[in-house]
């Protein structure tokens, strides 16, 4: 039984939506008016309504990325009126509700823009660069079956909480889209921070940060100039403190690596 809620007043908005047929096709904004917006609708439900209208008119609907629609899978990725994930704080596109808008509003909707995130179609971008960074080192090596009892390694609650603060990253890429240099530092720092504060993560700590940072650099992400737009746009509000922490890790690891290389070339350190 789907219950109707009759009492809500519907309103009208004008949408300016980025349409681009494919990766190498030219793109442009196209305007649409939508007159039946319910304030309780989510932003993506509003796009659903637009798409059903377009389909019935025989036009191609707007391609947009989405899945969980509750702010956890990191799939949705619209820049709304210039802001990645739109007007809210600490929310993803799918958690924006139309009650944030008023009758007559003009809403501009674009994909997340960054060199490392090429546009696939309309509002959908390719974020596989993030997977590549993870593949380079975003893990603790522990084969199934090899683990000791979980309580054998106590983790101070503060460390576990800090790790969790970083681990919450949903991998959406808003940090990259918000950064004027399109840097992926917050994303990488969150993973390096999560695994680096835990005792389990120590064995691969140096290797991890070096591999992830160099892969990030090779994939066309820009460098960080400490503006912290990333944290402000992050749907999980992950703190830029993790970037400072990663910079320290990176320096330490680079130094140790240099030292090791030197020791190896002078014949020391073997044994």
């Amino acid at each position: 039984m789907v219950a109707e809620k009759p009492s809500k007043k519907l309103f009208a908005v004008k949408l300016r939506v980025w349409r681009q047929a494919g990766p190498s096709a030219p793109g442009a904004f196209v305007e649409y008016s939508l007159n039946t917006v319910n304030p309780d609708m989510s932003f993506l439900e509003m796009l659903d309504v637009l798409n059903d209208d377009l389909t019935m008119k025989g036009e191609e609907p707007v391609a947009f990325a989405h899945d969980c629609r509750e702010g956890i899978c990191g799939t949705c990725s619209c820049t709304i009126n210039g802001k990645p994930h739109g007007p809210g704080q600490g929310v993803a596109t799918c958690q924006v509700y139309m009650r944030a808008y008023r009758d007559g509003d003009v809403i501009t909707i674009e994909p997340f823009r960054a060199k490392a995130f090429p546009i696939i179609k309309d509002l959908v971008v390719d974020r596989s660069a993030f997977d590549k960074i993870q593949q380079a080192g975003g893990y603790i090596t522990a084969r199934a079956g090899s683990a000791p009892d979980a309580n054998a390694i106590p983790v101070p609650k503060g460390d576990a909480d800090l790790a969790m603060d970083a681990a919450q990253c949903i991998g959406c890429g808003a940090c990259v889209a918000a950064c004027k240099n399109a840097s992926a530092m917050l994303f990488v720092a969150a993973k390096v921070g999560h695994l680096g504060v835990l005792p389990q993560g120590q064995a691969e700590r140096d290797r991890r940060v070096l591999a992830m940072v160099s892969t990030m650099d090779s994939l066309g992400f820009g460098s960080c100039t400490n503006q912290y737009e990333c944290s402000a746009a992050c749907p999980k509000l992950i703190s830029h403190d993790f970037i400072a922490r990663m910079n320290r890790d990176y320096m330490g690891a680079s130094f140790r690596q240099m030292f090791k290389a030197e020791a190896a070339s002078t014949g020391g350190g073997a044994g």
Partner: peptide, 21 residues
């Protein structure tokens, strides 16, 4: 075994003050 495996992979499970799960 699942909990052991996940803890080894760095899953930040909730902890008590003593550091245990």
């Amino acid at each position: 075994n699942i909990i052991d495996q996940c803890a080894a992979l760095g899953v930040p499970f909730a902890r008590e003050y003593g550091g245990l799960l």
